[in-house]
Design a protein around this nucleic acid. Structure first.
Lengths: 147, 147
DNA sequence: CAGAAAAAGTCAAAGATAGTCAAACAGGTG
DNA sequence: CACCTGTTTGACTATCTTTGACTTTTTCTG
């Protein structure tokens, strides 16, 4: 039921959780062969899952002795990241993405995120789109402030 | 006598009744081929039968490794009671009381309740009182519907 | 230093799911 | 019958994943 990308994500997070320094270093090709996939699959996982919005940063170097380093960011950093991405108005979809990122970053529980998304839905607000967008923006900012 | 949709509904409920965790996961295409129908028939059944009003929630993901998860909602009795007490408009204070009751009843976690109260605050909504009251009422009803 | 070797990155196509929507169909009911 | 409601289908769309050919960067070696 889980995709390869999911498994790789979990494996990396597992590694991270047992990493004293808050980061792990690995080789793209090694990871690829461990999961029997092409190297660019690793790049895909990093690009979709280990982004700043979700509380991670990836550093790397090419060439002989190259590596990929995945760093877990402090809460403050990903909060700021998300805050920066919020404009004057926020669509339902954007809000959902933001909540998912907060969950992925461990700043929100699943239940909380689900309930919040419910409250921010267009159907719930029942406001004209322009207003709904502004309300959602305020909601997210308030939320981030208090996390 | 029984439509295909009915059979599928029953089959899923059967599955659910023997599911330890209160939810089942399946693939739309598998279900479709089990019942020899087109995949969108599954979508139809889910959209008409496994909705919050009937006590279910459906989550899904597309793409490789995609799935459909059908969750049975708890449906506690006190829910209806609270629902009855919510009028056309709800003040911030009333909303807070309602959230507290839900928490006390074990339907909401602490974190969730805290975040929800943040989002329902007058200061967050930033709407004229009349509108804010209506929005809060819809928020609470939607929430209750999905708990 | 030049060229080879060893990484990692990019990007677009192909594949794998699920969702949407409207038309066709079926079973009742006035 | 005419109509209404709910069901079934399928063409088209949206989203997410997997793959591989090609590129770029860095180091190693003669």
């Amino acid at each position: 039921m889980w995709s390869l990308a999911d498994e790789m994500e979990n494996w990396i997070k597992e590694l991270l959780s047992t990493a004293e320094e808050g980061f792990v270093e690995l080789r793209r090709s090694e990871l690829a062969s461990r999961f029997s996939c092409v190297p660019s699959q690793v790049t895909y996982v990093l690009a979709t899952r280990f982004v700043p919005e979700r509380g991670y940063r990836v550093e790397s170097r090419r060439g002989a002795g190259g590596y990929i380093r995945i760093v877990k960011l402090p809460r403050k950093a990903c909060r700021a990241q998300l805050e920066a991405g919020i404009g004057q108005r926020v669509s339902e979809r954007e809000a959902l993405t933001c909540l998912n990122n907060l969950t992925a970053a461990g700043l929100l529980g699943e239940e909380t995120a689900r309930c919040l998304s419910l409250l921010m839905a267009d159907a719930t607000l029942g406001l004209p789109p322009f207003l709904a967008g502004k309300v959602r923006a305020r909601m997210l900012l308030t939320l981030l402030e208090h996390l």
